[in-house]
C-alpha cells in the first residue's frame, strides 16, 4: 500500500493503518532500534511504542515519508531508552556510535559563533548534501540506521578496516562543517 493511502487510513482513524504501517516499515524500523539498543526485545518495544505515537500524531501530521516518520520516532525512542539506562549496563550499537561521533564534536565555539549557531540537523543536512551519494548513504546507514561496520563493509565488498577509514574521513568532514557553522552540542 502506498504511503499516502496509509496516511489516509490514519486520518480516517482506521486501525488497519497501524497494521499496514507495521507490515510495510515495521521490521526495518524495529531493526534500527534493536541495533541501537543491542536487544531485539527492546527494539520490538520501541516499535510498539512508536506505532502508538504515529496513531496519536497522524492526524494532525501528514507525513510525506512514513518510513522516515516512523523511523525517526523509533530511533528517538531507542535513544531515550538508552539514556534511561544510565544506571545499567550500556550495550548495543549506541555505545559504538557515540564513541565514533566523538570525532565530530566541534571545538567549544566562540561567542560570535554561538550567536550564529543553527539547528544541528539542518547543518548536517547541508553537509550531507555536499557528499557524493555513496558517502552520504554510507554515513546515514551507519549513524541513522545504526548498521554495523562489518555489515556495511560486506555489502560494499570492502574490508571492515577500509570502511572504518572511510567513516573516519566522513566524521572529520562533519566535524569541520559543524565547527564552521558554529553548532553547539
Amino acid at each position: 500500500m502506498e504511503d499516502s493511502a496509509i496516511v489516509e487510513l490514519f486520518w480516517s482513524r482506521d486501525s488497519q493503518a497501524i497494521s499496514e504501517l507495521q507490515d510495510k516499515y515495521g521490521a526495518a524500523c524495529q531493526s534500527v532500534a534493536a541495533r541501537l539498543l543491542g536487544s531485539v526485545e527492546d527494539g520490538q518495544e520501541c516499535l510498539n511504542d512508536a506505532l502508538h505515537r504515529v496513531w496519536d500524531t497522524v492526524p494532525p501530521q501528514r507525513p510525506r515519508s512514513l518510513r522516515a516518520y516512523l523511523g525517526k520516532i523509533v530511533r528517538n525512542l531507542a535513544i531515550d531508552r538508552w539514556r534511561e539506562r544510565a544506571a545499567q549496563r550500556r550495550d548495543g550499537e549506541v555505545s559504538s556510535l557515540t564513541a565514533e561521533l566523538e570525532d565530530c564534536l566541534p571545538a567549544a565555539p566562540s561567542a560570535e559563533a554561538v550567536a550564529q549557531g543553527r539547528e544541528t540537523a539542518a547543518v548536517i543536512d547541508r553537509w550531507l548534501g555536499t557528499l557524493p551519494k555513496e558517502d552520504r548513504v554510507l554515513f546515514v546507514r551507519r549513524y541513522w540506521y545504526g548498521d554495523r561496520v562489518d555489515e556495511l563493509a560486506k555489502r560494499r565488498g570492502v574490508s571492515p578496516n577500509n570502511l572504518a577509514q572511510r567513516l573516519f574521513r566522513l566524521r572529520s568532514g562533519l566535524k569541520r562543517a559543524l565547527e564552521q557553522e558554529g553548532v553547539i552540542l
Binding site: 510525506r64 515519508s65 516518520y69 557515540t98 548536517i124 551519494k133 546515514v140 549513524y143 541513522w144
Partner: peptide, 16 residues
C-alpha cells in the same frame, strides 16, 4: 549529536 542526527531530512533517510 547521535540524537540530533535523527532529525536529518527525510530524503536522505529514504535514500539510504
Amino acid at each position: 549529536l547521535l540524537a540530533q542526527l535523527g532529525g536529518i531530512d527525510e530524503q536522505y533517510i529514504d535514500e539510504a
